[in-house]
């Protein structure tokens, strides 16, 4: 049983950043703005968040320091994503091109600043944020072992973000308007919805979540940040599409991917998989192959927002 718990805990380290960043992408794409810049925003947010963390972690309580780093990562991601919003909403630029520009900018900027202020590009920090056991909740049989031992506070933030975004998107007036802007902006406009404002809010929300997601990715998996997030921004984009632009399916997609990733990295500790004796390369490839196979069966009816990627001009028919 301990292997199962271990796997579940590991799965969360991979799943939560994917989930949060993909939900970020969801807000942007549902408003009609394609966001291939998730990777760059993650790097930018992780850089600002982790750099702050390395400075504040000695002076304040550890969980508080992490929360502060998440907030800083989120806000810096939001500011960075404003570049994408201005270009793609107000100036009607090609969304893929300016997203690519952000992807190139973020790592270069992170290395440039890091090397300017501390001569090396690595930013080290102590990973002291794992919660061995949550009081009370950790003692619940089974569920406690699955979710509330050896966990990070980020896991709960991830689920809270999921729940909140579901409510915002489907149960509020704002959510309905946002989705309308992604499906048929002219119709939304004709009913008095400010398409530009909606799209700005969608992109900025994606910036906040992706920036936070960058910090969330780095903290459990490493003790230093070196201007990369392991391609998780692109994987989050894949999860968003795999999840068919729907919050709950995004959760399933990121759980699926996180579990496959965990199997790939921990196969040698699982007696059944270790006994087969395949080379480690097979296990490393498995999550990606499995995703492709799953896609073959789920893609026939794509649910992409209809207006995604198309700039909107007021008065357009």
């Amino acid at each position: 049983m301990s292997i199962v718990y271990f796997m579940a805990q590991q799965t969360m380290y991979f799943t939560i950043p994917l989930l949060i960043v993909a939900i970020g992408g969801l807000f942007s794409e549902r408003s009609g703005i394609a966001n291939v810049a998730l990777e760059g925003i993650m790097v930018f947010g992780a850089f600002c968040g982790i750099y702050s963390l390395s400075h504040i972690q000695n002076s304040i309580h550890s969980q508080l320091a992490l929360l502060l780093a998440l907030l800083i990562g989120g806000i810096s991601g939001l500011i960075f994503s404003a570049l994408h919003a201005i270009a793609s909403v107000s100036l009607k630029a090609d969304q893929v091109i300016c997203g690519t520009a952000l992807n190139i900018f973020a790592p270069a900027f992170a290395i440039y600043i890091a090397r300017s202020v501390q001569t090396i590009s690595h930013i080290g920090f102590r990973d002291e944020y794992i919660i061995k056991k949550v009081p009370f909740l950790g003692s619940i049989p089974i569920i406690g072992d699955f979710l509330f031992t050896n966990c990070y506070i980020t896991t709960f933030i991830g689920f809270a973000v999921l729940a909140a975004s579901y409510v915002v998107l489907y149960k509020t007036r704002y959510g309905l308007r946002l989705r309308a802007c992604g499906e048929h902006p002219a119709a939304a406009d004709s009913l008095g919805v400010d398409v530009y404002k909606m799209r700005y809010s969608g992109v900025l929300a994606s910036g906040f979540l992706a920036g936070m997601g960058g910090v969330i990715y780095v903290v459990p998996t490493s003790t230093s940040f070196d201007a990369e997030v392991g391609g998780y921004g692109f994987l989050a984009l894949a999860v968003l599409i795999f999840g068919q632009w729907k919050p709950m399916r995004i959760l399933l997609a990121s759980l699926f991917f996180g579990l496959m990733k965990t199997l790939a990295s921990a196969y040698s500790t699982i007696p059944l998989l270790a006994a087969i004796g395949l080379p480690s390369g097979f296990y490393k490839m498995a999550p990606y192959i499995a995703t492709i196979i799953a896609l073959v069966f789920t893609s026939k009816k794509s649910q992409a927002p209809k207006a995604v990627g198309t700039p909107y001009e007021r008065g357009q028919k």
């Binding site: 894949a238 390369g281 492709i292 073959v296 009816k301």
Partner: peptide
Amino acid sequence: LLKAVANVNEVISCIMMNYIGMYLANM
């Protein structure tokens, strides 16, 4: 082929094929 036959979004399958290619080449 996946796009033509099963309507799989090429962005996501390309991202997957990147990682598969990298691990396969290493192996």
